[in-house]
């Protein structure tokens, strides 16, 4: 098996994540799809790191993980705040910044 297959899998997962962001309406599911996209890019980083024999790709995957963790924490706090004021977690209902 060629190492390219990992890259194909990564591209496929990234695409599925992008489709989820476009299709789903529940804000939490949209967030999960963004996580899927970040994870797919991590797989590409790790595979490239192995192809080139260079450890920097793994480090970039670490940094992506940290950024993803920050994004989840802040994003979920925003979702909870919006849910508190509107009683809805749908991205369609949050059309206005104010109530």
């Amino acid at each position: 098996m060629s190492l390219d297959n990992y890259l194909y899998l990564s591209a496929l997962l990234f695409t599925i994540g992008a489709a989820g962001v476009l299709i789903r309406r529940n804000a939490i599911v949209v967030f999960m799809c963004i996580e899927l996209m970040l994870n797919a890019s991590n797989l590409a980083f790790v595979t490239f790191s192995r192809m080139h024999g260079n450890i920097d790709g793994q480090l970039f995957a670490f940094f992506t993980m940290v950024v993803a963790a920050c994004e989840v924490v802040v994003g979920l706090a925003i979702i909870v705040t919006i849910y508190r004021s509107r009683r809805s977690a749908s991205v369609d209902d949050a059309r206005l910044l104010k109530l």
């Binding site: 529940n26 996580e35 994870n39 979920l76 909870v80 809805s88």
Partner: peptide, 23 residues
Amino acid sequence: YTGAVMMLFLFILMLVGVDSSDS
């Protein structure tokens, strides 16, 4: 991921309501 982040996701899902399905 499978530990902390997914736990956080499930926690918020329980907070917001499990049956908040898509329109």
